[in-house]
Design a protein around this nucleic acid. Structure first.
Lengths: 242, 242
DNA sequence: TTGACTTATATGTCTAGACATATAATCGTA
DNA sequence: TACGATTATATGTCTAGACATATAAGTCAA
């Protein structure tokens, strides 16, 4: 509309308060340990009610930028240097985001009674059926990652009839299983014969490994190992805090 | 009212509302796409004011568990399967948390005018001085990681006189530079001669690599490369969302 | 000096309203 | 039927209070 000159649209007051404080912390004007103004002081400065500044400060506390202590005040926290947001995108999304052509290929799919090794890997005790899947993702027809997955059929019965020859199991699960929790473990190995062939790299070349273990309400859903060529693939995590 | 009987302490009302809803989402009772009750319905159910349920729902929206749409209502989001919280702890903290003895050893420290390669690595244009540090972290006297770091003295002048023979540069920076932003890149390589010797592993053994690039207010602070023995070290990221 | 008790105060939570705003639904018209 | 205008409504933000509660700081006695 008419006011195209500068700062976009009008942010709400509590967002402006939050941004003001965040800026002073991030520029170092208010270093770690610094006591930021009391709520009543901010109320006076911005001419608003206490609930408004409280909302701003609560969000900063939730983001771990400040620490709030009763009776004492609110203080700039020391950066933690420890929690980063690591984007582990769906492989198809990752590849298409790079502007490359996504390719998928099912290598093997076996439905079997869970072996001792399967139960160990899934972290379940009871016997039951599992699906073991091996597949490959490629970008512009170059191998991008190989996937080795185990799905617990007791938790996801409908996986028995899913067609994994066209849809990657990761996408299928994402659309057929609601909210889950997961644990990722990242490590490095060197390619053995089988891996080297699947990824079209040399035996002994480095590989990045992501092991993901997924569950819902304490029930195991799936365990997957992803192998990437180590020198060409990178995981990027960007974050605030040292 | 008179609903006090049970044990534990009494969580506040908005936290109870948030936990109730979160539980229904996580157990799958309310699957992705499900419309959760309107604020006025929750107000009626819990017998509280709208601001209280609004606070609960706002926090769920901030955590990306629900999506709020004006006029339409609030809906359970589809899990993203893409952002994980990766804990990249301070190495000393990581080792002591494992109950092992932390050891630190400075391998080299050089103060020099930035070379073209240094400027490239730090992403700065202007000439200036840098400190290049190479050091090793160990756990119970076993090499744990080697660190190769560059610090931009224009941004952190006091680093020139810091004693890095006893304190790791990471810890020192953490305590002398306020809030920063960083980008981590994780990859895998195989050990060359120098790395193999420093980590006491075989040449050609896999290594996990973390490259961290740190800045504050668009100003580069430091660039560091951490090398871990790939098969013994693991990065763990745990999170919600598929 | 130490420990126990009291007090002051900043944050934590909550209320019962208010108006703003985006937008789904409905209605009316071409 | 398709499209534009209107309306209804759920969320977004805000207010001016309130009481609860943890705790820093001060007070006083042993």
């Amino acid at each position: 509309m008419s006011l195209a000159t500068d700062g976009a649209d009008k942010p709400t007051l509590y967002k402006r308060i939050r941004a003001d404080i965040e800026k002073r912390i991030l520029t170092g004007e208010w270093p770690p340990g610094h006591r930021i103004p009391f709520e009543h002081e901010l109320v006076a400065r911005y001419g608003c009610s206490r609930m408004t500044v409280n909302k701003a400060l609560s969000e900063l506390a939730q983001a771990d930028l400040i620490e709030r202590r009763r009776r004492a005040g609110s203080f700039v926290r020391r950066p933690q240097h420890q929690s980063a947001v690591l984007k582990i995108a769906d492989i198809r999304a990752e590849i298409t985001a790079l502007g490359r052509a996504y390719g998928y290929e099912l290598i093997s799919r076996k439905l079997r009674a869970a072996t001792a090794a399967d139960r160990e890997r899934l972290g379940v005790r009871k016997a039951g059926k599992v699906i073991a899947i091996s597949c490959r993702h490629s970008a512009d027809n170059v191998p991008f990652a190989v996937e080795d997955r185990l799905i617990d059929l007791a938790s996801v019965p409908s996986a028995a009839t899913a067609d994994f020859s066209r849809e990657p199991p990761g996408s299928w699960l994402l659309h057929h299983v609601p909210w889950t929790e997961a644990e990722h473990t990242i490590s490095a190995i060197v390619a053995d014969d089988r891996t080297a062939e699947a990824l079209d790299i040399a035996v002994g070349a480095p590989c990045l490994v992501i092991d993901r273990y997924t569950w819902r309400s304490a029930r195991t859903i799936t365990a997957v190992r992803l192998l990437y060529p180590g020198e060409s693939h990178r995981l990027v995590a960007r974050f605030k805090g040292g």
